[in-house]
C-alpha cells in the first residue's frame, strides 16, 4: 500500500487523528505543568523564567512548529472527517437515536473540537501573539530581562469576568473532548487487551478531569486574587 492510499483511507485518517491527538495530549502535559508555576506564590518569577526557557531554547521552538502543524492537521482532518461522515447519510431519520447507545460527548467531538478551536483563537490572541509578535512588558529578575507573561495573565483575567467564563467554558469543552479522545486514540491504534483498555479508560478520565480543571483554575485564581 502506498503512503497516499494509507493517508486517504478511512482507517489511515483515523490513525492520524489518533497520533496527532496523542501529541496534543503530550503538549497539554507540558503546558499545564509550566503554567502551574503561577501558583508558586513568587509573583510569577518561576513562571516567567519557565516561559522564557520555552520561548528561547531551540528545542521547544522547533517543537512549537510541530505543535502548530499538529494542531492544523488535527483540526483540518477532524473537520473534513466530520463533514465527510455527515454526508454518508443524505436522508436522515425522523426519530433520532439521541443518546440511546452512545453518550452525547462521543458523538459531539466535532462540536467540542470547534468550541476548543474558537477558544484557541482567543487564547493565542491573548498570549502567544503578544509574547511572540507584538511584544510584552519586560520584567527584570536577578538583573536579567524577561517577558512579563505573568503580568499579561493578570491583565487579561483580573476584573474581566467574561474572559474568565469563556476560559472556563473552553476548559469544559476540552474536558469532554478528552474524555472521549484520550481512550479513543489508544483504541484507534489497535489496543485490544481489555486489561489495558480498562487502565487507559481510568487514566483517560483522570487526565480529562485533572488537566482541564487545573487550566480552568488559572484564570479563576487571577480573578479571585489567589495569586
Amino acid at each position: 500500500m502506498k503512503w497516499s492510499d494509507f493517508f486517504t483511507s478511512s482507517v489511515g485518517k483515523k490513525l492520524i487523528m489518533s497520533l496527532s491527538g496523542l501529541f496534543l495530549i503530550a503538549f497539554l502535559v507540558v503546558h499545564v505543568g509550566l503554567n502551574a508555576c503561577i501558583w508558586a506564590m513568587d509573583d510569577g518569577v518561576m513562571f516567567n523564567k519557565a516561559a522564557h526557557f520555552m520561548g528561547s531554547n531551540v528545542v521547544p521552538r522547533v517543537l512549537e512548529i510541530g505543535l502548530f502543524a499538529t494542531f492544523f492537521l488535527h483540526i483540518i482532518q477532524g473537520l473534513v472527517l466530520e463533514f465527510q461522515n455527515r454526508a454518508k447519510r443524505k436522508k436522515g431519520y425522523a426519530v433520532k437515536m439521541g443518546s440511546k447507545g452512545s453518550a452525547w460527548y462521543r458523538k459531539s467531538m466535532g462540536l467540542l473540537g470547534t468550541l476548543i478551536l474558537l477558544f484557541l483563537i482567543m487564547h493565542i490572541a491573548h498570549f502567544w501573539v503578544p509574547s511572540r509578535i507584538t511584544g510584552l512588558e519586560p520584567v527584570y529578575i536577578d538583573g536579567k530581562e524577561y517577558h512579563n507573561l505573568f503580568a499579561e495573565m493578570a491583565s487579561v483575567f483580573n476584573d474581566n469576568l467574561l474572559v474568565v467564563i469563556l476560559y472556563v467554558l473552553g476548559c469544559f469543552s476540552l474536558a469532554w473532548h478528552l474524555v472521549h479522545g484520550f481512550q479513543s486514540a489508544f483504541r484507534a491504534l489497535g489496543l485490544t487487551n481489555h486489561k489495558y483498555i480498562a487502565l487507559i479508560n481510568s487514566v483517560g478520565i483522570g487526565f480529562s478531569v485533572i488537566v482541564p480543571l487545573a487550566f480552568a483554575l488559572m484564570p479563576v485564581s487571577f480573578y479571585l486574587g489567589w495569586v
Binding site: S10, V11, M97, M109, S184, A188, G190, T192
Partner: peptide
C-alpha cells in the same frame, strides 16, 4: 460508508453483541 469515531452506538445495537474491541483490532 463513513469512518469510525468510536461512538459505540454500533456495539449498543448489535443483535449479536459483537464487541467494539474488534474495531481496535482492525485498526491495529
Amino acid at each position: 460508508f463513513g469512518s469510525c469515531t468510536f461512538t459505540e452506538a454500533c456495539e449498543a445495537v448489535c443483535p449479536k453483541e459483537i464487541s467494539i474491541t474488534n474495531i481496535s483490532r482492525l485498526n491495529g
